[in-house]
Design a protein around this nucleic acid. Structure first.
Lengths: 129, 129
DNA sequence: CACATAGATTGACATGCGTCGATATAGGTG
DNA sequence: CACCTATATCGACGCATGTCAATCTATGTG
């Protein structure tokens, strides 16, 4: 029977926004019977936190944020992280799919920048637990 | 050579607090040469987000938070999550070690409650990236 | 077009992690 | 002490994930 549902998800999830209200799930017994976080809602929020759950990805966000221009290309990111280029590209992709980074290709280079307000909305996810 | 340092860490990490200022790491080349997140700092912050990176743990936090008394025992948590008792205990342990939950044993029962301000401090981690 | 460079994708490998069943431990009750 | 109940811990299993080397794609440049 279904263990590991393997959240088959899309890109650039936008859970950071509304998500409707806490749907009534209404536990039968226990302490207060409050609805709390629904299964789907929890799964989506966890995806965002999963993107933040790696030290190198946190550093990527930090470097991009700290950059003068607010953006950085891959070649600027491999050196400080001491990681191979494919690995950095991999991490950046995860951050983009989580809705935290924006990717813009200009010429040969790909410039990554913070999605405006994304970090704030993510912080908001914690408050609305 | 050392890949995967396997962060050998302790319990109830308190990264949620000060952590000193962003230490000067000063990259040599690239875009802005900003210090950004240090390696150790990133690793510790990632531990907190990793605790939040699981749907069932988010639901645990939510249920505990929503509870009338602000606390819940394990027996109240297994049913709504549809998980075995050992699994719930496992998740709770991770949340305690992340500094998000507090455990208090009273009689035969173990009561878990939100560490006051922990979620807010975690939200602050995002702002200080 | 030939060639160089930036970045993404693929495949493989090892480790991490969520889950369970079984078992151990601790407190309560007779 | 014997027994029950609530949790915690252990060992195992399988999927997930971070990493790299190799390769592919796209954009320049001669």
């Amino acid at each position: 029977m279904s263990i590991y549902v393997h959240n088959g998800f899309m890109d650039t999830l936008q859970i950071l926004e509304p998500v409707a209200g806490p749907e009534a799930d209404d536990v039968c017994c226990a302490p207060s019977g409050k609805p709390a976080l629904g299964v789907d809602e929890a799964r989506q929020k966890a995806l965002v936190f999963r993107a933040l759950a790696d030290p190198n990805r946190l550093r990527l966000l930090s470097i991009v944020k700290a950059g003068e221009s607010g953006e950085a290309c891959v070649c600027d990111l491999t050196a400080p992280l001491d990681l191979g280029q494919p690995t950095v590209s991999h991490h950046l992709k995860i951050l983009v799919e989580a809705g935290l980074l924006h990717r813009e290709k200009r010429g040969t280079w790909a410039y990554y920048s913070l999605v405006p307000g994304a970090l704030e909305r993510t912080a908001g996810l914690l408050a609305s637990l």
